[in-house]
């Protein structure tokens, strides 16, 4: 158990700068999710904390100690990889025990710790199997088990669920969260899936092109995005963006953002539009509208509300408190 601190961490591969200076303070036992689109540098950041990638400049501290030049093993971390990276020729038991064997932990203690982890992860029947004789979900558990037995101060996960099918993903997501709570270990979790980020995180870090755009509690980030990127990335369907010039009372160059659920329909509205098409999803309905200037806008309404006909002209409005305005650089005003 430990705190993790990143101080102006930067990374370049040769001449390409990938991480442009990230600061994060992670409290003991906190579950932090790093989320962002592909290629924004999530894995690179995590791997710098793990010690698998050198730190170009800045500082990574684990439990107050600068670990920039320390080998992964001595950082007291454990990592779960996207493709699990299990040793193919070793049994499940040996896979989990390998790190402990290297650390020269006594045999009886190894057996104890592996047994405890196996019990926790329901892996007991499979201890003698090879990884290739396991299902994807079981392999995933072995990878978790390998991390758990080390009793690390920090768990690092790099998209651990992305190779699983949708249903299993939901189940493993819950298990990971429960496990982390139970063990109370600080965790850093990388994903590009915003549902995982919203559900798992105590706080989440939204990355955009090598910069941490916003760090905060999932609901705070959702409700109060600091940049247009965050507003667009978190939430599905994404926030609607309207050019300020279109909206009475706003100037050109400013962008207005409104979440689909905050759009109200009915005459007379602030803007007029017509319904392009609708998608009834059961519990809710998505209504895709086109404004007079051609821009698109999506509204979300409860299934109990009557669905407007396609092609119908309607007025669009919103409460002032729900409108988010961004400057030309995408910063929140």
């Amino acid at each position: 158990m430990a705190t993790v601190t990143l101080r102006n961490v930067k990374k370049s591969f040769g001449k390409t700068d990938v991480i442009h200076g990230v600061d994060i303070d992670i409290a003991d036992g906190e579950f932090i999710v790093i989320v962002g689109p592909s290629g924004c540098g999530k894995s690179t950041l995590l791997r710098m904390v793990a010690g698998l990638e050198t730190i170009t400049s800045g500082e990574v501290q684990i439990d107050g100690k600068v670990v920039n030049t320390i080998e992964p093993m001595e950082r007291d971390i454990a990592m779960v990889f996207q493709n699990y990276a299990l040793y193919p020729h070793m049994s499940v038991f040996d896979n989990m025990a390998y790190g402990l064997k290297i650390a020269k932990v006594p045999k009886s203690e190894i057996a104890d710790r592996v047994a405890t982890a196996a019990k926790l992860l329901q892996l007991e029947p499979y201890l003698q199997r090879k990884p290739r004789e396991l299902s994807g979900g079981q392999r995933q558990r072995v990878a978790m088990g390998r991390a758990i037995v080390r009793k690390p101060a920090v768990f690092l996960f790099d998209e651990p669920l992305s190779n699983l099918d949708a249903k299993l993903r939901v189940q493993m997501r819950l298990e990971i969260k429960a496990l982390q709570r139970e063990l109370g270990v600080t965790a850093l979790y990388v994903t590009h899936d915003q549902v995982e980020a919203m559900t798992l995180a105590d706080r989440m870090v939204v990355m955009n092109g090598g910069v941490a755009d916003q760090i905060g509690k999932p609901l705070d980030v959702y409700a109060d995005p600091q940049t247009a990127f965050v507003a667009g990335f978190i939430g599905s369907p994404p926030t609607n963006f309207l050019d300020g010039g279109l909206v009475p009372g706003l100037s050109n160059g400013v962008t207005l953002g409104i979440r689909p659920e905050h759009i109200q329909m009915g005459d007379p509205g602030r803007l007029s539009a017509h319904v392009a098409y609708t998608e009834a999803l059961g519990a809710e309905t998505l209504i895709h509208c086109r404004l007079t200037d051609g821009s698109q806008l999506t509204a979300r309404q409860d299934a109990s509300v009557p669905i407007p006909a396609e092609g119908q002209s309607i007025g669009i409005t919103w409460e002032d408190g729900h409108a988010m305005t961004f400057d030309a650089n995408g910063r929140r005003l």
């Binding site: 698998l52 992964p72 093993m73 996207q82 990276a85 040793y87 790190g99 290297i102 390998r146």
Partner: peptide, 11 residues
Amino acid sequence: ELAEAARVDGA
């Protein structure tokens, strides 16, 4: 990743 996992395991 196998080499990296081993490195994290302290090999």
